[in-house]
C-alpha cells in the first residue's frame, strides 16, 4: 500500500491563502486505509482549513468530496465539470492522484494535501513501515523475502556492513538491520549457504533511473 501523510497545516494554509472557493477531494484507496486521505480525513481537513483561514482573517468556502479512487479516469474526469465552481481542488490522494487530476483536468488547479512517503505495511494501528522500494527488479527470493534495497540504509546487496550491531542499523537504533534479519531467516531455513553467493551489481534502469516507468499489457489494451 502507498503510505502518505498530511502536509503540515501551515503549509496547507499558505497553499490556499489566495483561494476563495475550494474543493477538498479525498480518495478511498490506499490513503483512506492509512488514514491520510479518506472521508474522515477530508472532513477534518476541511474544518481545519475553514478555521485556519478565518483565524488568519481570510475568507474561504470549502466543499468536500471523496472519490472511490483518484487513479482511474472514470472517477476523476467528472472533476472537469465541477472545476468552474472552484478556485482550486485540494487532493487528498497520493501523488499519483494529484498527477492524474493534473493530467486529465486542464481546468482544475489541483493542489496536494499529502506527502506521499513510501510503499509500506501497517505494523499496528498508527504505525507503518517501508517494505518495498518499487525498484522493478525484485530479489526477494534470494533474501528470504526481506528487501535489502528498500530496507537497508545503503541498499547493500551482499550482506551487512560493519555498522550492524545487535541486529540494529548504525544509522538509527530504531531501525532493524535487514541483513541481520535476512541472515537469521535464511539460517533458520538452513539456507544461509546461499548468502555466500555474490549478488552482482544491480541494473537500476527498472527503478526509475532509466526514466519514468510505464507498463503495457497488449492483451488488455482497448
Amino acid at each position: 500500500m502507498i503510505i502518505a501523510e498530511r502536509k503540515p497545516m501551515k503549509e496547507l494554509l499558505e497553499m490556499v491563502s489566495n483561494v476563495r472557493r475550494l474543493l477538498v477531494v479525498g480518495c478511498r484507496g490506499c490513503v483512506a486505509v492509512c488514514s491520510a486521505g479518506g472521508d474522515k480525513e477530508v472532513s477534518i481537513l476541511s474544518a481545519a482549513l475553514r478555521l485556519g483561514v478565518k483565524k488568519a482573517g481570510g475568507e474561504i468556502e470549502i466543499d468536500q468530496d471523496t472519490l472511490v479512487r483518484q487513479c482511474d479516469p472514470e472517477y476523476i474526469d467528472p472533476l472537469n465539470d465541477r472545476a468552474s465552481k472552484y478556485d482550486a481542488v485540494l487532493s487528498m490522494a497520493c501523488g499519483v492522484g494529484v498527477n492524474f487530476v493534473a493530467d486529465r483536468c486542464p481546468d482544475v488547479n489541483v493542489l496536494p494535501a499529502l506527502n506521499t512517503t513510501f510503499y509500506g505495511a501497517n505494523l499496528s494501528s498508527g504505525e507503518w513501515k517501508e517494505m518495498c522500494a518499487g525498484c522493478g527488479a525484485c530479489v526477494l527470493h534470494l533474501t528470504g523475502g526481506l528487501c535489502p534495497v528498500a530496507r537497508c540504509a545503503k541498499s547493500l546487496s551482499n550482506g551487512p556492513c560493519g555498522g550492524s550491531q545487535g541486529g540494529k542499523c548504525e544509522i538509527n537504533p530504531d531501525v532493524d538491520c535487514v541483513w541481520q534479519k535476512i541472515y537469521d531467516r535464511l539460517s533458520g531455513m538452513d539456507r544461509k549457504e546461499e548468502l555466500r553467493q555474490i549478488m552482482p551489481i544491480r541494473d537500476w534502469t527498472t527503478s526509475g533511473h532509466g526514466g519514468p516507468r510505464r507498463r503495457i499489457r497488449e492483451d488488455l489494451l482497448p
Binding site: A153, K154, S155, L156, S157, N158, G159, C161, G163, E170, I171, I198, M199, P200, I201, R202, W204
Partner: peptide
C-alpha cells in the same frame, strides 16, 4: 561501501550506493 551520509556534515545529501563494496571489487 562508505559511511552513511547521515553521519557526516551533509546529512541531506542523496546517498548514491550504486553498488556495494563487494561489487566495486568485482568491477
Amino acid at each position: 561501501t562508505g559511511d552513511h551520509q547521515k553521519f557526516g556534515n551533509h546529512p541531506q545529501a542523496k546517498g548514491v550506493f550504486d553498488m556495494d563494496s563487494i561489487q566495486l571489487l568485482q568491477m
